[in-house]
Simulated assay, not measured.
Amino acid sequence: MMSHDVMPLPVEYEALRGKRCLVTGAAGFIGGALFRRLVSYGIDVTGTVLLPSEAEELRREGLRAAVLDLSADNNWDEMLRGAQVVFNIAAMFQETEQSEDMYDKVDHRGALRLAETALRMGAERFVHCSTVGVHGHVKEVPATEATALNPMDLYHRTKLAGEVAILDLARRTSPSQMAITAIRPAMVYGPGDRRMLKLFKTILDGRFVMVGSGQAWTHLGHVEDNVDAFLLGAVAPARAVHGEAFNIASAEPMRLRELVELIAREGGVQPPRLRVPLAPVWAAGVVAEVLCRPFKVRPPLSRRRVGFFTHDRAFDLTKAKQRLGYRSQWAHPEGVRNTIAWYQERKLVAPRSR
Rank of each mutant, 00 (worst) to 15 (best):
V23G: 08
S71H: 12
R64H: 12
F35N: 00
V23W: 10
L51P: 01
L63C: 09
A26L: 14
R64W: 06
V86D: 02
E61C: 09
A66E: 13
R59K: 13
F87V: 05
E14G: 11
L16T: 14
Q84C: 13
K19E: 12
A66C: 07
F29T: 11
N88T: 05
A33V: 08
I30H: 15
A26M: 10
D77H: 02
P10T: 12
I89H: 06
L9M: 13
S53I: 08
Y13E: 12
R36I: 03
S40V: 15
A33P: 06
E14F: 07
L68Q: 07
T46R: 05
D73F: 05
I43N: 02
M7S: 13
E56P: 03
M7D: 08
I43R: 03
G82V: 00
S71I: 09
G42R: 04
L70K: 02
L68Y: 07
G25S: 15
R17L: 05
A66W: 02
D77W: 00
T24S: 06
A55T: 01
P10R: 13
D77Q: 06
P52T: 14
R59M: 13
P52F: 13
R60V: 08
R59Y: 06
S71G: 15
E56W: 05
E56Y: 04
Y41T: 05
P8Y: 02
E56Q: 13
E56I: 07
L63T: 07
N75I: 04
G47E: 07
E54T: 11
E78C: 03
R81K: 10
S71V: 13
A33K: 10
A55D: 01
A83N: 07
R37E: 10
D44C: 01
D44L: 00
L51C: 04
A83D: 03
E14M: 07
T48V: 03
A55P: 04
R36Q: 08
T48A: 05
A55Q: 09
A66V: 03
V39T: 10
A27Y: 12
E56L: 09
R59A: 11
G18Q: 06
G62T: 14
V11A: 12
Y13C: 10
P10Q: 11
A26T: 12
V11M: 09
R60I: 07
V11T: 15
F35A: 03
T24A: 01
R60S: 12
L80W: 02
K19T: 10
E56M: 08
S71W: 12
E57Y: 04
A65K: 03
S53N: 11
V45A: 04
V49W: 00
A27V: 12
E54K: 13
E54Y: 08
Q84G: 15
G32Y: 06
A90E: 08
E57H: 06
G62L: 13
A66N: 02
V6L: 13
R37F: 05
L16C: 13
K19L: 10
A83Y: 04
M79K: 00
L63P: 05
D44T: 00
R17F: 05
I89S: 14
E14V: 11
L38M: 08
S71A: 15
A55S: 09
F35D: 01
A33Y: 07
L9T: 14
D73V: 06
L58I: 06
D77L: 00
V11K: 11
Q84V: 11
V49C: 05
S53E: 15
G25P: 14
G32P: 09
K19A: 09
A27K: 09
G42E: 01
F35W: 02
F29H: 14
A33S: 15
